[in-house]
Simulated scan of single mutants.
Amino acid sequence: MSSDLYAVADFCLIPIGTGEPSVAEYIAECHRILEKSGVTFKMSSDIINLEGPWSQVSQAIHDCHAAVHAKGAPRVATDIRIGTRVDRHIIPGTGNDGKVKRVEDIIKADPSS
């Protein structure tokens, strides 16, 4: 087993004290950081899904915090959920999509439930 676990994570980053009603500029900055990070990611309206080696995932979240502070947010709060598994191999970049596909397959198999 690799010493760096493969992690599937989601996080919600919240800039605090900006005095602005929208946080879109700060989240866009985080997006730019994630594009350079090497982790697989997908953004939704309020959650960012990441996956990759644990060290890269945690570094990417750290780098988002640093970038949002550098953009002027005096405080940043983040909720993070990280999952790992060692009972089967996850093909890098397919962890989140695999979870969603499994649920969609169950719904398609029995749509009346």
Score class of each variant (00 low, 15 high):
Trp54Val: 04
Gly98Leu: 09
Thr84Met: 04
Asn49Arg: 10
Ile48Leu: 09
Val103Trp: 10
Ile47Asp: 13
Ile16Ala: 10
Ala7Gly: 02
Phe41Lys: 00
Ile48His: 06
Ile48Thr: 15
Ala9Trp: 06
Ala73Val: 04
Ile107Phe: 12
Lys36Gly: 06
Pro53Thr: 08
Trp54Gly: 08
Glu35Asp: 14
Pro74Phe: 09
Glu104Lys: 14
Ile61Ala: 02
Gly83Ala: 15
Val23Asp: 08
Met43Arg: 14
Met43Tyr: 12
Gly95Trp: 02
Asp4Ala: 00
Leu50Asp: 04
Ala70Asn: 09
Ala28Phe: 07
Thr18Asp: 06
Gly95Pro: 01
Trp54Ile: 07
Phe11His: 04
Ala24Thr: 04
Ala67Ile: 07
Lys36Ile: 09
Val23Gly: 09
Ala24Ile: 07
Ser44Gln: 11
Gly93Gln: 05
Glu29Lys: 13
Asp97Ala: 14
Cys64Pro: 05
Ile106Thr: 14
Ser2Arg: 15
Tyr6Met: 01
Glu20Leu: 15
Ser55Val: 05
Val39Arg: 02
Ala28Glu: 12
Lys99Val: 14
Phe41Ile: 02
Ala60Asp: 00
Val23Leu: 06
Gly72Ser: 04
Gln59His: 13
Pro15Trp: 08
Ser22Gly: 05
His31Asp: 12
Thr84Asp: 05
Val86Met: 13
Glu35Met: 11
Pro15Ala: 04
Glu104His: 14
Glu51Asp: 08
His69Phe: 15
Pro53Val: 06
Pro15Thr: 05
Ala24Tyr: 09
Asn96Cys: 09
Glu51Trp: 02
Pro53Asp: 00
Asn49Lys: 11
Tyr6Gly: 03
Glu51Tyr: 01
Glu25Pro: 10
Phe11Lys: 00
Asp97Val: 09
Ile82Cys: 05
Trp54Ser: 11
Glu20Ala: 13
Glu51His: 01
Gly38Ile: 00
Asn49Ala: 14
Thr40Phe: 07
Cys12Ser: 13
Lys99Leu: 15
Leu34Phe: 03
Tyr6Leu: 00
Asn49Trp: 12
Asp79Pro: 00
Arg85Ala: 03
Pro74Gln: 08
Ser2Pro: 14
Arg88Met: 11
Ile33Arg: 08
Tyr26Trp: 05
Leu34Gly: 02
Arg75Ser: 01
Ala70Asp: 13
Met43Asp: 10
